[in-house]
């Protein structure tokens, strides 16, 4: 069991690390393509396209890590007004709703991914890019997000602090 958890944690942090590298890549790709252009060269089209696709990969691969970090902004209005015992219940209930949403999106994300393979869909920009390479992020990201949210349903740590305000 411990090995499974360790492997899972490694997956989560590897995904976040790739997201961080992608952010740096955004800078590099823009700088290189502007420099090439101004030196009179033709910038590689993949510099531009990789930045566009990079935003999706970055967001999807990093989102589960941000759940663990409690970085997805939420508003404490109801949870701040409730007595502690009820607040714990509402907090776990909201986390359970989030698990439910993520499971739905992971499931239909998987359907979309399979449809894209079956239909042989391409995204047409500078290149014909197989669309499943984009949509494969959905089942992965939302499954891991569902696991992360379920930690706030069953674990000792709660998503909500009970202090009024917008929280990360």
């Amino acid at each position: 069991m411990r090995a499974v958890i360790r492997a899972y944690d490694a997956l989560l942090y590897t995904m976040a690390f790739i997201a961080a590298l992608t952010l740096v890549w955004l800078m590099v790709s823009v700088v290189v393509s502007v420099l090439m252009r101004n030196l009179g060269m033709q910038p590689f089209a993949w510099l531009f396209t990789s930045a566009e696709y990079g935003i999706l990969y970055m967001t999807m691969l990093g989102a589960p890590w941000l759940v663990r970090e409690k970085g997805h902004v939420h508003i404490e209005l109801v949870t701040a007004a409730l007595p502690p015992s009820l607040r714990r219940f509402v907090s776990r209930f909201v986390a359970a709703l989030c698990v439910f949403v993520c499971v739905i999106l992971a499931w239909y994300g998987l359907q979309l991914f399979l449809t894209n393979i079956e239909r042989n869909n391409f995204d047409v920009r500078a290149y014909y890019y197989p669309r499943w390479l984009l949509t494969v992020t959905f089942p992965i990201a939302f499954s891991v997000m569902a696991i992360e949210f379920s930690r706030f349903v069953f674990g000792s740590d709660l998503m909500h602090s009970g202090e009024a305000g917008i929280h990360e």
């Binding site: 252009r37 009179g40 060269m41 033709q42 089209a45 531009f48 047409v124 920009r125 500078a126």
Partner: peptide
């Protein structure tokens, strides 16, 4: 853009900016 880049870059060999 994607529609005419094949013409612009492959034939005209122009410097194309997306």
């Amino acid at each position: 853009n994607a529609v005419y880049n094949a013409f612009f870059t492959n034939y005209l060999q122009a410097q194309v900016i997306d």
